[in-house]
Design a protein around this nucleic acid. Structure first.
Lengths: 146, 146
DNA sequence: TTCAAAAAAGATATTCATGTCTTTTTTAGT
DNA sequence: ACTAAAAAAGACATGAATATCTTTTTTGAA
């Protein structure tokens, strides 16, 4: 409920790169999957999607890996949700009723509208950079072990 | 996201019974599945669960069907969520981190806490009876066609 | 130019929610 | 007792999210 595992992997992945890449070398998927305790190839697919969306950059070959793009830190969480979960959930009735809308509401329409709008607002205003706390020595732990 | 289809079926099912059963006969699964445009046997399983939880009553055999229990209208939506989706989602970290809690928060901990608590509060206070609007001649429509 | 390292891509497997079909149990009326 | 109607139960099918395994492409360095 709320969000998929893929979203969690995406966020932890990009935060990992944002935290460690500035220290030097590019980040390898092997290392990430290890440290984040996440399925390697599944993570790789999600990372690839983020690269396609310019949320990250990547280079192949020796000394390659993932690194920040010019917009990584400004990327809103909602962009990650779009990639991993899609936006449909925010527009579709919780009772799956196609005709449901504010003129013709299902019994839960306005309650769900409020909850979803709250989430939308939060995820629209929060960026990757907002979540990144380099000053906190425990930050890496807070995204690591499942 | 947010809630499963099963939850939607459960809510529409119980509202359907609450709306039509007082008018006379018990409600047959066949009729419900038809009017709600929902998979018959899948709905049957969910109705059975609600009966097991005393949210509804049922009688087998000729002239049987589903009817209200003494507590149907007082049942909170959260009870339906428990049955269909489970409560785990409200207690588990959005990033699937087992160690995440308010002392040791993941980067999204407090944002998600707020959103989930909002939803919990709403679903804890709202009952089936609260959603049932018998005065509204279009109520049946608002839970009918998918 | 060849080699090895790395991401990208593709193929297959597993799990879980959802959906369908069949059989069993219960029960009211004859 | 018998029959038919209805829910309950069980077996099987499908689809989507998640996970694993293999092959291809790219590229830096010797």
């Amino acid at each position: 409920m709320f969000l998929s595992k893929s979203f969690g992997y995406a966020l932890r992945g990009v935060l990992y790169v944002a935290l460690l890449e500035p220290k030097g070398n590019k980040i390898k998927i092997e290392q990430m999957a290890d440290k984040l305790a996440v399925p390697r190839h599944f993570l790789a697919k999600i990372m690839k999607k983020m690269v396609q969306e310019d949320i990250l950059t990547s280079t192949k070959g020796p000394y390659g890996g993932f690194s920040l793009s010019p917009v990584t830190l400004q990327t809103k969480l909602l962009h990650l949700v779009k990639i991993t979960d899609g936006m449909e959930q925010f527009n579709t009735c919780v009772l799956s009723l196609r005709k449901c809308n504010s003129k013709n509401p299902c019994p839960l329409h306005f309650q769900m509208l409020q909850i979803r709008d709250g989430m939308l607002a939060e995820f629209s205003k929060t960026s990757i950079g907002d979540l990144l706390d380099k000053k906190n020595p425990d930050f890496i732990k807070s995204i690591s072990v499942i």
